[in-house]
Design a protein around this nucleic acid. Structure first.
Lengths: 194, 194
DNA sequence: AAGTTAATTGACTCGTCAATCAACAAAAAC
DNA sequence: GTTTTTGTTGATTGACGAGTCAATTAACTT
């Protein structure tokens, strides 16, 4: 039953199905057929819209990054002043959405991909630069010339805490993650104002 | 020309070849034949010794973790007092060996594996607990009741900095990595002694 | 010397899967 | 109302790769 103007719907369905299936499998060892089936279509159609498997994964990752970016921006508009903004960024990095198994899985596989697939590396670079620049612009008014080091440090803690929570033996504890990073932020601020 | 007592040599060769090939490919999408060929034998022999591909990868990762553990222990014997010991742990985490492309690749793929393969998760747990306990035992004499939080924080920074350096757009800068973490360590100590 | 064990491989099986293609269906355009 | 565009799939191709197996060779034992 071919209808017109379905392309965006189909693409979105495929992207979601990709995220789900990659999460299910925990790896990129997922067949295009599985994904297509979950999205309610044939594998041929998936190829029709995305060309190949890799592009499909990249589209899925782009989607995840877009959502994350939106969460950060959303949290930022509610924040008053640089310190609140920094806290908002931290909180946005540890929302429930970001800890869903599928998202964790996507990130880990994305890291692997970034080693060899230029487009993945490019996307990762964008994420890293955006986080850095966000942190930097709110750290500068608070800690001046220490901002650069503080941004690197906070960025690393955010990534590190995420990784450890995601791969910890027990269920991720978002509150603990946020507390740890906010605490590090406070320490950084206390230090930088001296 | 079958000789006796070759098993350990062959196994070691396979483990090394696995690390090399996984590094080359950047992923676990490496055929057993490729690995076996690099190790100078037939794929059948690889299966003979390790059973299946997964066990081979796990053996390779176990090897990497063993080397890392040895580096840490080696650095620790040279250190006097808790602070020097902490610095030694940090330095050992960012040696050139740990930043070789193959090792980075192994770690990233190991993370992915840890999501679904119980033995990988177990190994990762061992690494995490060892790091934590190492940090904790030297932090306690220095910062007392703050040791727990400090250990979590430092552990996260170590992992985070490693990840970022490994996946950064430019070549990893080991000195910068060490400096950043040592700096965080100093901050943690200054704070904890208050 | 005969038998056991370790080492070793080529060839094969069996399954899988990405990607392509020919063909068909329906809507839109003319 | 025919042509074009868009959507859609079943079937197929072509390649690849994990794991098995039977058979071979050499060393070690008794």
């Amino acid at each position: 039953m071919p209808k017109v103007g379905v392309e965006p719907i189909r693409k979105a369905a495929l992207v979601n199905a990709t995220i789900t299936e990659v999460g299910r499998a925990g790896s990129l060892d997922v067949t295009v057929s599985q994904i297509a089936k979950r999205a309610g279509m044939s594998s041929a159609l998936a190829h029709h819209y995305f060309g190949d498997k890799e592009s499909l994964f990249l589209a899925a990752m782009r989607h995840i990054l877009t959502l994350y970016g939106a969460e950060v921006r959303g949290a930022l508009v509610m924040a008053h002043g640089p310190k609140e903004r920094l806290q908002a960024i931290v909180r946005a990095s540890f929302t429930a959405a970001n800890f869903r198994g599928e998202v964790v899985s996507a990130w880990l596989n994305f890291y692997v991909m970034a080693q060899t697939v230029p487009e993945a590396r490019r996307l990762l670079g964008i994420y890293q630069r955006r986080l850095r620049s966000n942190l930097l612009s709110d750290l500068r008014p608070l800690v001046g010339r220490n901002a650069l080091r503080a941004a690197d440090s906070l960025g690393a803690i955010i990534d590190g805490v995420y990784l450890r929570q995601a791969l910890g033996q027990s269920q991720p504890d978002r509150a603990a993650a946020v507390a740890l990073v906010l605490d590090a932020l406070d320490a950084e601020l206390a230090r930088g104002m001296a």
